[in-house]
Simulated assay, not measured.
Amino acid sequence: MQELYFTQKLPVSLDEAWNFFSNPANLKDITPAHMGFIVTSKHHGEQMYAGQIIRYIVKPVLGIPLKWCTEITHVADKQYFVDEQRFGPYAFWHHQHRFTETADGVLMEDILNYKVPLGFIGDIVNALFVRNEVRKIFTYRHKILTERFGS
């Protein structure tokens, strides 16, 4: 099992941060274009809710499309939400998105626990490729969010 932790401070209100991040349609905007990320599910309202299923197509390696399905399992309004993979490229995926209001904006925290399939072969693939690619995605998100909201 792998755990990654990312933080970012944004100079926006808690309402503005929550409204942006809890809308599944915005996921594409914060994912690198080379990943070919497309949300394929229809959304019921603009904000996430516990029990919501979100389906995607993503092309993480060599442009090969993979179907990915996550469920929003927990939501505490303007505090956190959790997405968990139901099927897709990982053996396990649990991603917490946390939001804390600060004097000058919002502290966002991403706590990601994941496991690559295929046992020790997956562990090698993770060490050589996956972990760095996941970090690059969050580095990209940090850059895009800074451009959008400031720093």
Rank of each mutant, 00 (worst) to 15 (best):
P32Y: 14
A33M: 03
P89W: 08
I144G: 03
F129H: 02
E3T: 12
K59W: 03
R135E: 14
R135I: 14
D110M: 06
W18Q: 01
R131K: 13
E46F: 05
V134S: 10
A25N: 10
V75H: 00
N23I: 07
M48W: 01
E109F: 08
D29E: 15
I121F: 04
K78N: 07
V12F: 07
K59G: 07
K115E: 07
M108V: 12
L27N: 06
G63A: 07
I124P: 05
E71D: 06
F20D: 04
R55H: 06
F20L: 04
F87N: 12
H97V: 08
Y56L: 00
F37M: 14
M1S: 06
D123L: 03
S13C: 07
I137L: 15
S41Q: 15
L27C: 08
V61S: 08
I30N: 09
Y90E: 01
L118F: 15
F138P: 05
H97P: 06
Y49N: 00
H95D: 14
P11S: 13
M35N: 02
D110F: 03
P117I: 14
Q85P: 05
P11L: 12
L14G: 00
F120G: 06
E109N: 09
M35C: 00
F99N: 08
K136N: 15
Q2I: 10
T102S: 08
R98M: 08
T100Y: 14
Q2G: 06
N132E: 07
A50N: 00
L107T: 03
Q85F: 05
Q2L: 11
L27P: 03
R135H: 13
L145Q: 06
I30V: 11
L10W: 13
K115G: 00
I64D: 02
D110P: 05
G63W: 04
S22L: 10
D83I: 08
